[in-house]
């Protein structure tokens, strides 16, 4: 177990290292941030000073070496644009994104799995067919369009929910969150629903397919032959068997929701990391881009680790020793 955790840790360090190198090179290839950061009226001397100040006068490999040395000490550099620590900027925006992603996944799991179970248990019923048809829409419609339509309907026409922003936040253990106040929840609802729709549809379809497959298995028939109530047959015998693929998808999707909430955050002016990244790319603010990607990759690695641990908890045939092979 300890060996397993250590091995996973080592793997993630390698991934982080490779990722930072790729980002460094690609941002370098895109262009010179000084052209954007320094005002057009600046003279050659000022530009020279700016380049020197940001350390851009040195060769790329040296810049990278400096970055690595500082990163090893926990310093991911200062933002070119704001001249504050890049990691600080990201951590400041992270709670908003995590809250949005968490709310979206909660909606997706809380609705998707029950809907999928229902559709799987009664595949011929009209409600099941409606769920399946709706889910096709759910994952075919582009997120930005869904977001805009929701804003149109619920904010513009009905006037029930606010169209943008995060609303007032409440401090929970020093972290600002929206979901504790009524007004905050109202702000959270539309962006979370927009972000959840795709995952909800995916989970409903996955759960339905798994349920139908499990229902045809002998162990379900045997469970019924034992006289178990339907609630126990479905809630324990079926559900526990189909959870492995569902948990995999939840893990993958949670990572992608956090990393790619950018579109939704832009539509609803949600002050999260995605918005920050877009702005940073606009001015080629390399330290912020690199720091953002490092944080995202770390989150992915953590989520995958949790998913792997969940496997072995859910399915006794999966042992961590095998996962190592």
């Amino acid at each position: 177990m300890i060996l397993y955790a250590f091995r996973r840790l080592l793997e993630s360090v390698v991934v982080l290292f490779a990722m930072s190198l790729v980002v460094f090179l690609s941002v370098y290839a895109i262009g010179n941030p000084v052209d954007i950061l320094v005002s057009p009226q600046a003279d050659a001397q000022e530009i020279e000073r700016a380049i020197r100040g940001l350390g851009l006068d040195r060769p790329l490999w040296e810049q990278y070496a400096v970055f690595l040395r500082q990163a090893a000490a926990g310093d991911l550099g200062h933002s070119f644009a704001f001249n504050v620590p890049a990691i600080g900027l990201i951590l400041e925006r992270m709670p908003a994104t995590l809250e949005l992603a968490g709310a979206a996944m909660l909606v997706a799991v809380g609705l998707g799995i029950p809907l999928g179970l229902w559709a799987g248990l009664r595949p011929e019923s009209a409600s099941a067919k409606a769920i399946m048809a709706g889910s096709i829409l759910g994952f075919s419609l582009p997120t930005f369009w869904v977001g805009l339509v929701l804003v149109m309907v619920f904010s513009v026409w009905l006037g029930w929910l606010p169209a943008s922003g995060r609303g007032p936040t409440t401090d929970l253990l020093g972290v600002p969150v929206s979901f504790l106040s009524r007004e905050g929840l109202r702000h959270l609802l539309l962006p979370a629903a927009t972000l959840a729709l795709f995952k909800l549809s995916l989970l409903a379809r996955l759960t339905r397919a798994g349920t139908r497959e499990a229902l045809a298995q002998d162990y379900v028939k045997f469970a019924r032959a034992k006289g178990l109530a339907t609630r126990r047959v479905v809630g324990v015998h079926v559900l526990k068997n189909i959870l492995v693929p569902i948990v995999t998808v939840i893990g993958l999707e949670l990572g992608s929701v956090i990393a790619f909430a950018i579109v939704t955050e832009t539509i609803f002016a949600w002050p999260g990391m995605g918005k920050l990244l877009i702005d940073a790319i606009g001015v080629l603010d390399r330290p912020v881009i690199v720091a953002y990607l490092l944080v995202t990759v770390t989150l992915f690695v953590l989520i995958n680790l949790v998913v792997d641990l969940a496997y072995s908890a859910l399915d006794p045939r999966v042992r961590l020793a095998e996962a190592r092979a």
Partner: peptide, 22 residues
């Protein structure tokens, strides 16, 4: 349901499939 598994029970053909693996 109350009778199944209590007054009347069944054993299936393939023991590899009848027990729930998890």
């Amino acid at each position: 349901r109350a009778l199944r598994g209590d007054r009347v029970a069944m054993v299936f053909q393939d023991p590899m499939m009848t027990l729930n693996p998890v």
